[in-house]
Design a protein around this nucleic acid. Structure first.
Length: 824
RNA sequence: GCAGGUAUGGCGGAAUUGGCAGACGCGCACGGUUCAGGUCCGUGUGAAAGCAAUUUCAUGGAGGUUCGACUCCUCUUACCUGCACCA
């Protein structure tokens, strides 16, 4: 151990030791309790950013801590390496996406190794490799065989100038990001996975996930969006199309004054044909193609619509109401047709106001402040039915069932459950993704490729122009094939899969990453799954986590895994900010991990990022804060260096004698207790580090005293280095060696708190007068309430405080406080 | 817009079960060390009033519950995240 802390020498040295000894490689070991610690794998965008450093530092502290607690810890890493940016880079530079991706991966692997994370690199998985996407294709075929994959038409963002499909991200203010042409919609036949078949289970099983943050579960519940209601069929005047609406508020049906149909509803064509409003309707439909769902459903956007010239008949009262096209009705939810009740729905209210339609009150809340005949906004509350024929006078909640049941009996209603969740559109008209292993045969239709022919390899004779439907279609070798069923000429699917599929099962592949015979051996997932702790950005709270849960449930039903939920505990980490906003190149407020590592070392970077904020919270980057962490490591290093000379050969045994011995022994053991709880139970690494800092401060004070107990100092030094090692592993290895140990600190036992050192005979308590602190006193610990209260009330402090005042009430909390309520 | 979240000194944050608001760190000030600067060691540091003891105010804002509220309830403001083809 050198006198000076030199991270530039220490860090590469220990990284090499770890690599050469293979210390982070794990195998299934039935004799040990397993722990699967997983961090969301990165997209290889180029270099690591601070969000990655934060995510992986959290995971590394946990992994190292659990390893020291005797667990067999699986801690893998990989790269989510298919996706749009690689393809954009290829279009821009005329290179191949694989070149861009693999050089990024190499760079990021290097950075991860420089940070000293305890990954089992032998299990590394990259989704763009043939050995990974082979099994992705195999899994897709299992979904197909189970009837969970299908093809359906769906409108996509379409740039007419590039003649290509655009991702939402590529649409900027309604225009193509490359050529600025206004984006429109185009119908394409697309692959879907039937996630809606699992909607009920995905919702119900959220209750099982006790280790998930409540906020994430709430977000998932809202996303799945289960609602109970009725489908009611209105009759079309002069036509025979059943105009079926979905409503959760069938009690308001007497307040229907119009009906709205989504502009992309397939029936619109025949509804408007020949009408005097036909041209106006077509124009409106064209305009609707330029807006996205968020804009369309915005409550603040002025409502637009177009009368179709048609009328429908309300089955409740036989009234005719006009039928409009309006973009606030989405084709993707319910039936694509909505009954307009301006009284009870704000969107309908806005629409009716704009188009001069009637507003009929149908519920009277009996509130004097509400004039239901002259509303300024839609009214939503419980009340008594009015203007509703035979239901008048009934409570509106009861009326839902009564009216609904009547429609069911009349054969024009159906009780239904609706989900906001839609089936998962997985096809992408892109190159850089897993090819969908399906073949279209003129005779057999869509058939999957034979399993023995997997993987279907991405062709390399492809042009990247940014134009056309899918780059794969430009390959001369890929498309034409033979039907796996009948052998006749057939064509391959040229679309690739959404990269969210790749990331929906990678945690299973890590369990058996090098298996070339199977996606994974069930014996291995039986041992390692489920993931004990999953850590990642809160921005993935809905989609990725829902898709991974869906996959796990399907694979469970196929008997390929033994768990039906993948992630037992979830930690969602906050973002890293600089000057109050997200670090981004456009804002120019990026601090690169590289910079910090070269200036202060990996240990400082890790320490700062864990100390600056608790993991779930946003973290404000501070350059001076980093310096503080660096100073702290130096302070620890100097202390341990000095101690290593003095405590050589002295056992970590002590009997505290004076006040100072007792104080250090108390702080030492209390620190062990606090740090253990903060890491293991609360994941509050910032307070764990505060506690360690307090211990260091106390050791600095104690060691300068005249009469010190060397056994106590030896124990404090030993425990200090152990406790700090998950946070700053390199410097701790160095100090551990300096203390005379020959084994790596990775895997030595986590220190244990000696409870006998925490027993105090005196506690300081607070005396309050009317809830305000007025004095403090020392009392013996462990008194019962009556004795405690009597003792305190008899004290001089209390006598002084209450002199000449009438005592109204006394609240005594033993060992904590006495609050005296007085008058006068 | 919808959904979810956050708000505490000059700054990052602490307060684990409703019980001493501001632990720990940064910054700042002063002192020591040093030729000097840096490093390092130490002391102080929410605001206002006061020589002081001490008192009053203070956890985005407005109310409420309670002996007692950063913590619970109602309303409100600002900001952050997601919104289904970015990953």
């Amino acid at each position: 151990m050198e006198q000076q802390y030199n991270f530039k020498k220490i860090e590469p040295r220990w990284q090499k030791v770890w690599k050469d000894s293979g210390i982070f490689h794990v195998t299934e070991d039935e004799s040990k309790k397993k722990f699967y610690c997983l961090e969301m794998f990165p997209y290889p965008s180029g270099k690591l950013h601070m969000g990655h450093v934060r995510n992986y530092s959290i995971g590394d502290v946990l992994s190292r801590y659990l390893n020291m607690n005797g667990y067999n810890v699986l801690h893998p890493i990989g790269f989510d390496s298919f996706g749009l940016p690689a393809e954009n880079a290829a279009i821009k530079n005329g290179s191949h996406p694989a070149v861009w991706t693999s050089s990024n991966i190499a760079e990021m692997e290097n950075q991860l190794k420089q940070l000293g994370f305890s990954y089992d690199w032998d299990r590394e998985c990259c989704t763009y490799t043939e050995e990974y996407y082979k099994w992705m294709q195999w899994i897709f075929i299992q979904f197909w065989n189970k009837g969970l994959a299908y093809k359906k038409e769906n409108p996509v963002n379409w740039c007419p100038s590039c003649a290509t499909v655009l991702a939402n991200e590529q649409v900027v203010e309604g225009c193509c990001e490359r050529c600025k042409t206004q984006v429109t919609k185009k119908n394409l036949s697309q692959w879907y996975l039937k996630i809606t078949d699992y909607a009920d289970r995905l919702l119900a099983d959220l209750d099982k996930l006790t280790g998930w943050p409540e906020k994430v579960k709430t977000m998932q519940r809202n996303w799945i969006g289960k609602s109970e209601g009725y489908e009611v069929t209105f009759e079309l005047k002069d036509g025979d199309l059943p105009m079926t609406v979905y409503t959760t508020r069938v009690d308001t049906i007497y307040g229907v004054t119009f009906m709205v149909i989504s502009p992309e509803h397939p029936w619109v064509e025949q509804l408007i044909k020949g009408s005097e409003y036909e041209d106006a309707c077509r124009k409106y439909m064209e305009e609707a193609k330029h807006l996205n769902d968020i804009e369309r459903t915005s409550l603040t956007k002025e409502k637009t619509g177009q009368f179709t010239g048609r009328y429908v008949i309300n089955p409740a009262n036989g009234k005719e109401v006009p039928l409009y096209l309006a973009d606030y009705v989405l084709m993707g939810y319910g039936t694509g047709i909505v009954m307009g009740v301006p009284f009870g729905d704000q969107r309908d209210f806005d629409f009716a106001t704009k188009f001069g339609l009637d507003i009929i009150p149908v519920i009277d809340p009996h509130l004097p402040e509400v004039d239901i005949n002259n509303l300024k906004a839609a009214f939503i509350a419980e009340g008594t039915m009015i203007n509703s024929g035979k239901y008048d006078g009934m409570n509106n909640v009861e009326a839902i069932k009564a009216i609904g049941d009547d429609f069911v009996n009349r054969g024009i209603g159906k009780k239904t459950t609706n989900f906001k969740l839609r089936d998962w559109l997985i096809s992408r008209q892109r190159y850089w993704g897993t090819p969908i292993p399906m073949i279209n045969c003129p005779d057999c239709g869509w058939v999957p490729e034979k399993e023995e022919n997997l993987p279907i390899i991405l062709p390399t004779d492809v042009e990247f122009t940014g134009k056309g439907e899918s780059p794969i279609a430009t390959s001369k070798t890929f498309v034409d094939t033979a039907c796996p069923c009948c052998g006749k000429p057939a064509k391959r699917e040229v679309d690739t899969m959404d990269t969210f599929l790749d990331s929906s099962w990678y945690f299973l592949r890590y369990c058996d990453a090098r298996n070339s015979e199977k996606a994974w051996d069930k014996k291995k997932t039986d041992y390692w799954m489920d993931v004990d702790q999953y850590i990642g950005g809160v921005e993935h709270a809905i989609m990725h986590l829902l898709y991974a849960r869906f996959f796990t449930k399907v694979l469970y039903d196929l008997d390929l895994v033994h768990v039906d939920e993948p992630f037992k505990n979830l930690l969602t980490q906050g973002m890293v900010l600089k000057d109050g906003s997200k670090m981004s190149k456009s804002l120019g407020n990026v601090v690169s991990p590289e910079e910090i590592i070269s200036k202060y070392g990996a240990d400082t970077a890790r320490l700062f990022i864990l100390f600056a904020a608790p993991p779930e919270k946003e973290l404000e980057w501070s350059d001076t804060g980093v310096e503080g962490s660096y100073k702290f490591l130096n302070r620890v290093y100097r202390l341990v260096y000095e101690m290593s000379e003095q405590i050589k050969g002295i056992p970590c045994k002590y009997i505290p004698e004076g006040k100072d011995d007792k104080q250090l022994a108390y702080i030492l053991n209390n620190t062990v207790k606090r740090v253990t709880e903060d890491i293991g139970k609360r994941f509050n690494f910032n307070t764990a580090l505060s506690a360690i800092m307090e211990l260091v401060n106390e050791m600095y004070r104690y060691k300068e005293l005249d009469d010190v107990n060397m056994g106590l100092l030896a124990d404090a030094t030993d425990k200090l280095v152990r406790m700090l090692s998950p946070f700053a592993p390199h410097i701790c290895e160095e100090m551990w060696e300096g203390l005379g140990h020959t084994e790596s600190i990775y895997g030595v036992e986590w220190p244990v708190c000696d409870e006998s050192m925490l027993v105090k005979d005196c506690v300081e308590i607070v005396v309050q007068l009317n809830g305000k602190v007025r004095g403090k006193m020392e009392v013996a610990a462990g008194m019962d309430k009556n004795a405690f209260q009597e003792l305190v009330m008899a004290s001089d402090i209390v006598k002084q405080l209450t002199e000449g005042k009438e005592i109204v009430k006394i609240i005594a909390v033993p060992g904590k406080l006495v609050n005296i309520v007085v008058r006068g």
